[in-house]
Design a protein around this nucleic acid. Structure first.
Lengths: 112, 112
DNA sequence: GACACTCGCAACCAGGAGGTTGCTGATATG
DNA sequence: CATATCAGCAACCTCCTGGTTGCGAGTGTC
């Protein structure tokens, strides 16, 4: 099953998981997943972090395509992007399926 | 939807994603997902990394429960563990569902 | 018992991640 | 125009990460 290595966005799913591997970024994504684009100031509002720290996290998310940004007037709005997360999901599904097949083989071996 | 913050293994899904955010570890997990426990030496065999490097990666995976290890004679066998990956999948499913609902609301607003 | 294999521990290193502060520039608003 | 807001850039810092090497200890084999 080479697809485990083949599929993936760009350099594979690892960078996507890496981007997801941070509480702050997960929180940002969760807030943006309601479809409402938000400015950096808005996203930094109820956080104990600096605006700059939030900005860096948003750039990390943007680098792997999890969010997109457009400049509107003096503020830049960040919006959720579903594609990379779908890729991540399908990768986890593949690994999971591989495991389920292994279980099925084991079961049929024991029974048969 | 507080479940986005509530669920999670231990300190939330972020550490799991962080553990998945590395090509080497993803590769190790993919190989172990066939159900066959393997020794460190076996897992280090067709890698250009040192055995110690592989060991560290395996420990990272073990820390978040993605693999488990048992000592058998002089070698320690690492085996795949499905639970954390299931948690990661369900988290991604939640975010994805949130997004889908947002799309549905937008659609019904435009149409209605 | 001598030897080969498997592993753990510790030290060490370079580089990147997460975060802060300070400053500057652009855009609204009075 | 004066002022406040939003953001980008750069420097700097600390700590973790990924990786290496060296060495010692347990385990199997002849």
């Amino acid at each position: 099953m080479q697809t485990l290595d083949a599929l993936g966005a760009g350099a594979g799913p690892a960078p996507i998981f890496a981007a997801l591997g941070d509480r702050t970024r997960l929180s940002l994504l969760a807030r943006l997943s309601d479809g409402e684009p938000r400015s950096i100031a808005a996203l930094s509002a109820d956080t104990d972090l600096t605006r700059q720290a939030v900005t860096k996290h948003l750039h990390v998310l943007e680098d792997v395509g999890l969010v997109s940004s457009i400049r509107v007037g003096r503020e830049s709005r960040f919006a959720y992007r579903p594609e990379p997360l779908a890729a991540a999901r399908s990768y986890l599904d593949e690994v999971s399926a591989r495991w389920d097949e292994a279980l099925a083989r084991l079961k049929s071996f024991v029974e048969g």
